[in-house]
Amino acid sequence: MNWIMIALGLTVIGITLIWFAKYRPKHQKENRGGADESELRDAYNKTIDLITKEKYYLNKSVKLTDLANELTYNERIVSRAINRFSNGNFNKFINSFRIEHSKELLTGGKFDHYTIEAIAEECGFSNKVSFYNAFKSETGMSPTQFRALKQSK
């Protein structure tokens, strides 16, 4: 009888711990890193400012660590801010700026003689494949299709 009570008690405790780990309120999960909402928002806004003013996204070898150091923030806080307020992780975040820049180059007229590979390089992508994949993911079409569509208008 004692064994049954102990086993039942341990089972209930185990189930409770598993349930709590899986279903605890979201705000408790998000606050693990010690940064509050306003600090994350501030880090995100400063990240956007730096990236747009300095065209940080054009650097092919940009890393989260470099960005965090430049901002004088902890890498984890910058990462959490990007994850929280943008549509993805650091790479997707940087690529979104690169894609916007590439759209300007693809339709600007001044770069009509550039190949897609040259545009990719100009925008900070390290290779054509990553550019195509990011562009298609963001716009729903390839850079070539985008250029042709804009030139036909």
Rank of each mutant, 00 (worst) to 15 (best):
residue 146 F to W: 02
residue 126 S to M: 06
residue 15 I to E: 09
residue 50 L to W: 08
residue 69 N to V: 05
residue 50 L to P: 06
residue 103 K to V: 06
residue 47 T to N: 03
residue 151 Q to E: 14
residue 66 D to A: 11
residue 79 S to C: 08
residue 92 K to R: 14
residue 102 S to E: 07
residue 92 K to V: 13
residue 106 L to H: 07
residue 129 V to Y: 14
residue 85 F to D: 03
residue 60 K to R: 02
residue 139 T to D: 02
residue 11 T to P: 01
residue 18 I to M: 08
residue 29 K to M: 05
residue 21 A to E: 14
residue 101 H to C: 13
residue 118 A to T: 03
residue 145 Q to W: 05
residue 149 L to M: 14
residue 99 I to K: 02
residue 28 Q to N: 01
residue 66 D to G: 07
residue 128 K to V: 04
residue 94 I to K: 01
residue 62 V to S: 12
residue 103 K to L: 01
residue 129 V to N: 12
residue 82 I to C: 04
residue 144 T to H: 02
residue 135 F to V: 03
residue 84 R to Q: 14
residue 81 A to Y: 13
residue 70 E to M: 03
residue 26 K to G: 04
residue 89 N to Y: 00
residue 62 V to D: 05
residue 44 Y to D: 00
residue 84 R to A: 06
residue 104 E to S: 05
residue 4 I to A: 07
residue 13 I to F: 12
residue 102 S to T: 00
residue 85 F to K: 09
residue 113 H to Q: 10
residue 85 F to A: 08
residue 136 K to D: 14
residue 23 Y to H: 14
residue 128 K to Q: 13
residue 99 I to W: 09
residue 146 F to C: 03
residue 152 S to G: 08
residue 29 K to G: 01
residue 15 I to R: 07
residue 58 L to Y: 03
residue 88 G to M: 07
residue 89 N to K: 05
residue 46 K to I: 00
residue 58 L to R: 11
residue 93 F to V: 06
residue 43 A to V: 12
residue 98 R to Q: 13
residue 123 C to S: 15
residue 10 L to R: 03
residue 17 L to N: 05
residue 55 K to V: 02
residue 86 S to H: 11
residue 121 E to N: 06
residue 12 V to W: 10
residue 117 E to D: 00
residue 68 A to K: 04
residue 23 Y to T: 13
residue 10 L to P: 07
residue 99 I to R: 00
residue 131 F to R: 00
residue 14 G to T: 08
residue 21 A to Y: 15
residue 129 V to R: 15
residue 140 G to L: 00
residue 82 I to M: 03
residue 19 W to T: 11
residue 111 F to S: 13
residue 12 V to N: 08
residue 98 R to P: 11
residue 89 N to P: 00
residue 56 Y to H: 11
residue 67 L to C: 08
residue 101 H to N: 09
residue 78 V to N: 00
residue 78 V to H: 01
residue 32 R to N: 15
residue 26 K to I: 07
residue 137 S to R: 01
residue 150 K to M: 03
residue 143 P to M: 06
residue 124 G to T: 06
residue 107 T to I: 02
